[in-house]
Lab assay of single mutants.
Amino acid sequence: MFYPNSPQTSPQLTQIPYGQQYAMMQRQIQQPYHPFATTEPQARLYPYHYQGPIQQEQGGFITQQSTAASPQYVQMRVTPVDQSIMSGYPNQTANGSSSSSFNYNIHPQQQQQQQQQQQQLRHHAMPVGSVPLQDDRYRKQLIVNYLAPDVTSTDLHELFSRFGELDGARIIYDKQTNMSKGYGFVYFCHAEDAKEAVERMSGYEFHGKWLKVGYSTNPLNIVPSNSSPYVHAGSRGAAG
């Protein structure tokens, strides 16, 4: 039997160049792979992502010199942007860049009308829970959420009447099932009393439920100042 490094198959040491006398086997001759043993700084910083320098080929596509990437890492192929796409944008300079302001050559009167329309939209648009300043009635009506099913309009009136005089209180019921929808409205005579009720009743436990109280901004629920107070009856038909 002959071994790869046996004296019968191995040459004389004098015939082997210096430095390879003890590297006779194939696994010894093959050098191990060192990912950080390279002179390129990109490979030292990113050993798993770097795959060699990027070269520009004919046709405008950018390719990489090395083989496919590892399945664990996804390499994105980048193509140059066609400058003709950006030619339609206004205020574009000769080098292809555009300024931040756009001039669509709008007539001054049209621009003024658009600004007025935007101001009107901001004036009428009102986020949930906010209180408008032009109508004091919005500051007097509250919406009470997360009410228990057994709470009546009379219970709601008695709960909030300790903060001040009320114009009314009612629970909203479903017309088909005649069941409470879980929320109601309270109408105060003074805005200061309503503000105190919002601050003190939010998070209050009532009939096993934690109440959420806020201003009601729905104009359909506003009680006119010259109208008669609501009837605080315990029956659902009268309260709904």
Rank of each mutant, 00 (worst) to 15 (best):
F61K: 10
S101G: 13
N5Y: 11
V81Y: 03
Y33N: 04
P4N: 14
S235I: 03
R44I: 12
I143C: 10
L45T: 12
M126L: 03
M24D: 14
T152W: 04
H190P: 11
I143V: 00
G59F: 10
P219L: 05
A68G: 12
N221I: 04
T177C: 03
S99M: 01
Q65G: 03
G96L: 05
Q92F: 14
S10K: 06
Q65W: 13
N91M: 10
Q115N: 04
E205P: 12
P4V: 10
Q134F: 01
H34C: 13
V213S: 09
G52Q: 08
K212V: 08
V198F: 02
G237D: 10
P35Q: 08
H190R: 10
N145M: 07
R170M: 06
Y146C: 02
Y173W: 04
T14K: 01
V131N: 04
G60R: 04
A169C: 14
Y18L: 07
S97K: 10
Q72C: 09
L142I: 09
K209E: 06
N145C: 11
N178L: 05
E205S: 08
L45I: 09
Q42P: 03
Q113M: 10
Q58S: 09
F185K: 09
Q112H: 09
T93A: 06
P71A: 11
S87I: 01
H107S: 01
F206M: 15
K212Q: 08
I16V: 10
Y18A: 10
F185A: 05
M25D: 00
S70C: 08
A169K: 11
G96P: 12
P71G: 05
V231L: 04
T63R: 05
N91F: 03
S84C: 08
Y104C: 14
A197E: 05
D155I: 08
P90Q: 03
Q72H: 11
Q20I: 10
A233Q: 04
Y18H: 10
Y22V: 04
I29F: 02
Y138F: 13
G214L: 05
V131D: 03
T14F: 12
S225C: 06
Q115F: 11
Y173G: 11
Q118W: 13
P41Y: 07
S225D: 04
D174M: 01
T177E: 06
A197N: 01
Q28A: 11
Y146P: 09
V128A: 07
Y138A: 07
S10Y: 01
L121S: 08
M24V: 07
S130I: 07
Y138V: 15
Q21C: 00
I172T: 03
N5I: 13
G129T: 05
G164R: 08
P41N: 10
Q117M: 15
Q15D: 15
S180W: 05
Y187K: 05
N145K: 09
V128N: 02
P71K: 11
A69H: 11
E165R: 10
Y46T: 01
L45G: 10
D174R: 06
P149H: 03
L220I: 14
V81R: 08
G182T: 13
Y204N: 01
Q72M: 15
F61S: 04
Q116K: 14
V223K: 00
T38D: 01
G129F: 10
M25V: 11
A238H: 01
D135Q: 14
P229A: 00
F2S: 08
N91P: 10
S180A: 10
Y204K: 05
Q114K: 14
H190V: 08
I85M: 01
N103K: 08
A94Y: 02
Q30W: 14
Q31E: 15
Y204D: 00
Q176P: 06
D155A: 08
Q176R: 11
Y173C: 11
P132L: 05
G59N: 05
N105R: 10
P47Y: 15
V213Y: 06
T154C: 09
I172S: 00
Y89A: 07
I62G: 04
Q176K: 09
P35V: 08
F206L: 04
G88Y: 14
V198N: 05
P219G: 07
F2R: 05
T39D: 04
Y187S: 01
M24F: 15
A148M: 02
S216D: 07
A238C: 15
